[in-house]
Amino acid sequence: MSLIVSNLRKKYGDRVVVDSLSFEMPRPGVYALLGTNGAGKTTSIRMILGMLARDGGEVLWNGGELNVGECNVGYLAEERGLYPKYGLMDQLIYFAALRGVPKAEAKRRIARWAERLEVEEYLYPEKAAAQSSAGARRARVKKPRPKLADQLSKGNQQKIQFITALISDPELIILDEPLSGLDPVNTDLFKTIIREEIDAGKYLIMSSHQMATVEEFCTDITILDRSKAVLQGHLSEIKKSYGRVNLYLKTEREADEQIRQSGARLLSRKEYEYRLKVSGEEQANFLLGLLTRAGVPVICFDLREPSLHEIFVEKVGEVHEPA
């Protein structure tokens, strides 16, 4: 299987919102679509899913035009929602039916996901009530009512939406800001599930502003800025191309003089902890030599490639800099 997005274009009037976006996923993995707000990420996703008419380009899945009616797609939209006044179970069964999952199978899958995502008490209130003795007494008197979506916290609503995205066991999963608004515990829970989906050989497209998350999961990226792809490729190769230029230095006493002499650029400083930008390994080694010769005790000397966050800021900043 493979996903090929080729030359996608979209215009609203005279305004180009996606300009010739192309990328490829020849094998399962995670592809990240990154970009500033309004760069065209969500529009691109909508065009990939066929929700929005394209002005040009094509999206191929296994060599043929991607048809969401035939390809098993799971989608977690950036703007998430549920029917506020309908029963949660009804909604999940409905979404499963729309994706072709029979009712009995849908119920089995919902039960599994409910347990996994710790939302059983909202989907099976009678079961939850039976587990607590006071609740069981109440349940005998009056059957507990199933919860409605608007009675759930934002995080729990997000879990239900995550179930709707994964209920059909999709082969292509598109997650638009999957971790936004989650607390650290639920973030870890979602991350574990995403990792499992990757291990199961799924194709994932992820859009996020959380660069650390993207770095954690994604193998390939596209950075969009004002409708155009400004950087594309394999993440580790992109990083390698930047070289090891980030230096974290921790000493036992002041090292300002040596840093100045080495020509390294000081980014930030907290007591004897320094974040520096060097031109490469040569300059870093030169600084280490200066420190050793000056007898400055070095506790930590960590030379790294730039983070995705830095690459993003640099790339987008470059584009935004006045000529």
């Binding site: 797609v73 989608y75 939209a77 703007e79 998430r80 929602g81 549920l82 029917y83 709707t164």
Partner: peptide, 16 residues
């Protein structure tokens, strides 16, 4: 309007 204001439309439009 409920489907639109509840931001459900995108989720629905993947399937229908």
């Amino acid at each position: 309007a409920e489907e639109k204001t509840s931001k459900l439309v995108e989720l629905l439009m993947v399937s229908v």
